[in-house]
Every structure is written in structure tokens, then in C-alpha cells.
Nucleic acid binder design. Sequence first.
DNA 1: AGCACA
Length: 484
Amino acid sequence: MSTSGTPQFRYTQTPSKVLHLRNLPWECTEEELIELCQPFGKIVNTKCNVGANRNQAFVEFADLNQAISMVSYYASSSEPAQVRGKTVYIQYSNRHEIVNNKSPGDVPGNVLLVTIEGVEAGDVSIDVIHLVFSAFGFVHKIATFEKAAGFQALIQFSDSDTASSARNALDGRSIPRYLLPEHLGSCHLRISYSAHTDLNIKFQSHRSRDYTNPYLPVNPTAIEGIVQPALGPDGKKKEPESNVLLASIENMQYAVTVDVLHTVFSAFGTVQKIAIFEKNGQTQALVQYPDLTTAAVAREALEGHCIYDGGYCKLHLSYSRHTDLNVKAFSDKSRDYTIPDASLLAAQQASSLPPAPPVWQNPQSAQMYPGNDFGATAAAHAQIPRGQVASWDPNMQAGRLTFVPAASSYPSQNFAAASVPAYATAATSGGSLPLSQRSPITSGVPSSVITQPGVPPNLRPGGASPPGVQPGGVSPPGQSYYGQ
DNA sequence: AGCACA
């Protein structure tokens, strides 16, 4: 009964009316296929956007000789077959008819997947997209995101008729020039249907909008219309403050566990969540405080310091773009201290192997993208072709972490410091930071945070500690951590 | 850069 006996393809192909085309550009349209193939004969069927990358297609000619003529032409031509400047490779298909030419993107629905070619995310605002598509009916929701294919938007209409009229009118067309920044050339729209029927928008932001729900909260780190990062007085990009710190750990001679980090960072306030991950071979961690001020204090105090004496495990701190991490409550790489009885979860976690893959690996279950700030992008993940995991850091494949590492998944976002509400100023105005009494570290070697090298603080919880060494997290900030 | 759909 198995169908897996035959090889996937053969190196010698018998001629077929059906040609297999690969290395096509993303979202290649049927029109483009026809333009390429019809000089050789009558095309009776096509199937576009095939394969994991949606860059393959099939074309069926009315007559075998027409297919043969196309293959032979390009076999001896000095000019390769091209679509949109990409060389297209043509072979006989190993089938002799196209049985079903409907691609998922061709099945009508009320949600359109729009790819805007040749632009970056900041070039076309969500308001422009809304304006363009509103011409065809009430736009319920828009979610924008960047994927390998480029800048994309999911646009939700009431029904598939409205969506179809928009698709028919706009597919392959360009957004009017006057709606775009001057530096842009043409930007064509490629439109297909999404399998979604209802987008899950969690915030009004510059990347997602729900026009049916004006009371939806505005994402404080993604307020609409602010695309350019705020500039500091020196003209350099000013780093947006955040209650979440990104810690890079340099010279990691000792294991830095979640417990170690918790100990270190708890000196400045309640640590809500921690996630450790690898990035470019370096260990990094996200540490979440309840507020900006605490994060700012911790950042000031710890920047450049080492967790252990001797220059080991040196911390470099910056603000994360996250405001609320979505982490496993208890794993070896993450902790959510806001969940009571996390330790109980630990036992269950430990016994269940292998760890469940993050939901985004499964397009079927990608309807809900749990807890990240960009709920709207949940829908985007359903667009990941079957079996393909998008451009995720391979280290994440361990499946331990469910938070989204911003840098790898949303490469081009620019959250503006200016968009942070008023309380941000509290963090920067602090002439009276609790730690300001510490002497500035002028020598090249900052003092360590934990004064006993090689003795992880988590091994000495609370109680008895060697003379002169404070158990981590117990002392108020600014005292013994920097004593000698 | 290498074959869809059930």
C-alpha cells in the first residue's frame, strides 16, 4: 500500500505535456507563467506557487510537441528562461496532467495575503494600505509583517466577494506613487488568499490594526505612525528604554544559569521573568522587571560588571524591545516568577520528553501566537510553508523557549524611544539612583558582582555565606556588591 | 536548483 517506493524524481525525463518549472520568483502569478510559456503552444492548465518555497510551478500544454518545443528551445538557447529577471529551470514533469491547479493561495477567502515588492516595512504605512484596500469595502483588520518574501500584509474583509474584488483589481498593480515616500520606485502588489478567516489582532500598533474594535489597547512599544527611531541630542539613535533588559554574557567561563541571573538581577527589584538563549555563539539573556525604572537602575549598576571575579561572565546590558516575555514557567533556560507554584510545573516539565515544540512550528496550530506583543503576526506564521520553519535561530529549535527573540524574527522593527509614555522620563532623570553612591569603576577591570569566583550564587541560597560575601539577592543594591 | 494533490 505504500506509495513511497518510487523516487521523487528521475534524472532522465520522458517528455510530458506537463512541464515542471523551478526557481521561479516568489508568488509568481499564472499570468507570468503564461507569458513565458505561451509562445510555444496552447496552455491548458497551470499550477503556481508549488513547493515549500512556493517558487515552483507546473504548466500543461495542449499538445506534447508544444512542451517538447519549449524544453528543446531553452536547452539550446543562450538566453535562459526568465521570470522577473530570475532564471527559471524547466523540465518535463513526471506526471502527464495537472490534476488540481488550485493552490491554497487561489482558494478564495475573506482574508488577502498581500506582498508588497521592493519596499521595506517602514516605507508603506498601514494607513496607506488601509486607504488602498478600503476602496473595495470595509477593511476589518490588517496585520503587517516581514518575512523572507518581503513586506507582507494580511487584510481582512467581511467576505470573500469583497476580497476577490480587491484582489482582482490590485494584483500586480502598484500603490499610487503619491502615497509612497519619494525615494521608492514602483512597488507591485502580489495578492493571494490567506487561509485565515479572522485575524487575531492584540494591539493597535504601527504593524497591526483592528478597525472593528476601537477600544483595543495600543501597544505601548509599537504606537502607530512612529517608524523612525528617536534620535538623541548627539544625533545617534537613542535606545528605547524597556522594562526588559538584554544581557550579553562575555567570557563565560562558568555556567550562568537562570538561578545565577535571578540572584544577580534580583538585587535591584523583583525579577519577573528570565530567558536564556544563544545568539551567534554567545549566551544572552532577557531579564524582565515590572517597570522601566528598576530596569534602568539594574542596567546602570551592572553594565560592564562580571558575575564572577577575574573577568568571568562579564555582563553587557541593553534594553530589549520586548516588554513582556513569554517564557516557559520553569525550564533550564527560562523562568516565569510571576506564576505561582512554578516549581510544581518543574516536575511535570522534567518528565515530559521531548519538550513540546513551540506552537509556531505547526502551521495548523499557529492561529494563536501565545502572548507575544505582536498578536497580529500570529497569522503570519500560518503563512510559513508546510514543514518549513522560518528564519529562526537554530538554537531555538531545542524548543525550550517560547518567547520571541526579537532580533531574529522581526529584524527591522524600530521602536521609538519617543513613543514610550511619560514614565520613561523617570528612568532617565534619576540623579538619585540608589546605586549612585557606588564609586565609579575607573580601572579596566570592574569589580565582580559576586565576589567568590567559581561559586555560583545559586549554590548558596540565603543562609550561611562566607564572611564578607553577601548572598545574592538579599542585600539592598549598592552595598556589598561593589564593596571591595 | 529537483515534482503538486490525497
